[in-house]
Structure formats: C-alpha cells, structure tokens
Amino acid sequence: MKKYLIATTFLAGIGAAGFALADDDDCNVAMSNWQPREAVKAMAEAKGWSVRRIKTDDGCYEIDGRDAQGREIEVKVDPGTLAIVEMEYEDDDDDDDYGKSGRKAAPVGTLAPPDNGLFTPGSKPVVKQ
C-alpha cells in the first residue's frame, strides 16, 4: 500500500503525460448503491467466466477467475453499474503500465474469435510474437 502511495505521489508529481496515474481505475460509488456479490457472480457467469474469488479493491469489485476460453482473468467491476472498469489477462505484464514488451504472446490455439462476421466460425487465430 505504501509503495502504491509513493508511486501515485511520484507520478502525480511529475505530471505524467496522459494516463499513467495509478488511480485512474478506482471506482467511487456510495456503499448504499453497491450491488450484492451475487449480482457480480451472475454477471460473470452470464459472460461464461468461472469465478474463483470476488473481492473489493480500490472501491471496485474485483473478480478473479477464468474467461470462457479458460484464460486467467482479473476484472475490476463498477459496484453500482457492474460495468467493466479494467480487465487483465494473466499473460499480461503485471506492472501498472502498457507492458514492457511482447515477451508473453497470447496462448496459441486456445483463442476463439467473436462472431463478428469477419472470421470463419470455429477457426482459431495463430499468434507469433
């Protein structure tokens, strides 16, 4: 927590251009307007996610689990609207930035493209980076 505060102060201090402020994704909803955990669980399951844990962090709900393709996810959710504030995949760098490089490519053969009419149904992207 202390490290987080120091990082926030530092970034605010140097006026980091754009979006680097660490509390960008905090939620700010009065407790009386929070939806129950069951609603968060139902929202996650409706998206095909399996939920391992729901906790609160930075004023948001945070869901730990797996998405419909089985990838580890960590999703911050607005506790009032249940809108997704931030979604992270396990294969992202864990720093609070863009990621230092493309060292960790998306897993090959475990992805399924959305049904947007561009892809052949049932096909899987192959990624090398």
Binding site: G99, A112, P114, Q129
Partner: peptide
C-alpha cells in the same frame, strides 16, 4: 466483447507481431 478471444500481449519496440486468421 469486440475483442473477446482475440486479445494478446502488447508488442515491444523493434519486435514483430505475426497473426494468422481464418477470414471470410
């Protein structure tokens, strides 16, 4: 939802992203 299942890692400077997709 637009990128569900088609999201990967960011790409480092000087590096290559190579994707093969089965498209209509």
């Amino acid at each position: 939802a637009e990128i569900n299942g088609i999201t990967g890692a960011s790409v480092g400077a000087g590096r290559q992203l190579n994707i093969t997709l089965d498209l209509s």
